[in-house]
Amino acid sequence: MNNVTVTKVPQNLEQNITVKADPKVRSAVDNWASSIVVNGNKVTSKFPALPSGYSMAIGLAGEEDLSFAETKMNVKSGQTHTFTFPNESKKPFLIFTVYGKGSVVVDGMIVRLPSLQSFYTAK
């Protein structure tokens, strides 16, 4: 497994984060991040267990090119999924999102590929 290092969100991005992290799911987000494996242009992760009443989704996209965007909604704990991403020049990233009741976003993480530089999407 590769090591994902979560870095502080740059200040210019942090001011745009309006989601308050739900402490019940932060460890699940961390568990998902620690499961990420990059092999060439393929990235695989395993979906963590969540407390009852929560759901999760994962997506792959690029900062400058959305032509390869793909999303998997309502993934199940224990499942794995592999995405294929284009070269680094497209600035690909994974986004993992956890939803609470009413499909409200309660936590998540963005992981740049293939560097695995990561940021929480809630504070």
Rank of each mutant, 00 (worst) to 15 (best):
1 M>G: 14
1 M>N: 15
2 N>R: 13
4 V>K: 13
4 V>L: 15
5 T>S: 15
6 V>T: 12
7 T>W: 02
9 V>M: 14
9 V>P: 10
10 P>G: 14
10 P>F: 13
10 P>C: 12
12 N>M: 12
12 N>L: 09
12 N>A: 14
13 L>S: 09
13 L>N: 10
14 E>I: 09
15 Q>H: 08
15 Q>S: 13
16 N>E: 02
17 I>A: 06
21 A>Q: 14
22 D>A: 09
22 D>Q: 12
23 P>R: 07
23 P>H: 04
24 K>D: 08
25 V>Y: 09
25 V>L: 11
25 V>N: 08
25 V>M: 09
26 R>W: 09
27 S>M: 05
27 S>W: 01
29 V>C: 06
30 D>R: 00
30 D>W: 00
31 N>Q: 14
32 W>N: 04
33 A>Q: 11
34 S>I: 03
36 I>C: 13
37 V>T: 14
39 N>V: 01
40 G>W: 01
41 N>D: 05
41 N>Y: 00
41 N>K: 05
41 N>I: 02
43 V>G: 12
43 V>L: 07
44 T>Y: 08
48 P>H: 10
48 P>I: 07
49 A>I: 04
50 L>W: 09
50 L>N: 06
52 S>L: 03
52 S>I: 05
54 Y>N: 13
54 Y>S: 13
55 S>E: 05
55 S>G: 04
57 A>K: 02
57 A>I: 02
60 L>Y: 00
60 L>W: 00
62 G>V: 01
62 G>K: 00
62 G>C: 02
64 E>S: 07
65 D>G: 01
66 L>P: 00
67 S>Y: 01
69 A>F: 04
69 A>T: 10
71 T>H: 00
72 K>Q: 15
72 K>S: 03
73 M>E: 08
75 V>G: 05
75 V>P: 12
76 K>L: 06
78 G>R: 02
79 Q>G: 03
79 Q>A: 11
80 T>V: 15
81 H>A: 07
81 H>S: 06
82 T>M: 10
82 T>L: 11
82 T>F: 13
84 T>G: 13
85 F>R: 08
86 P>E: 04
87 N>L: 00
89 S>P: 00
90 K>S: 15
91 K>G: 09
91 K>P: 04
92 P>R: 06
92 P>D: 13
93 F>D: 11
95 I>L: 09
95 I>S: 14
98 V>R: 14
100 G>M: 06
100 G>C: 07
101 K>W: 06
102 G>S: 07
102 G>K: 14
103 S>L: 05
104 V>N: 08
106 V>I: 14
106 V>Y: 05
108 G>F: 02
108 G>H: 08
109 M>F: 02
111 V>G: 03
112 R>Q: 13
113 L>R: 03
113 L>K: 01
113 L>Y: 04
115 S>Q: 11
115 S>C: 08
116 L>W: 01
116 L>N: 09
120 Y>W: 09
123 K>P: 02
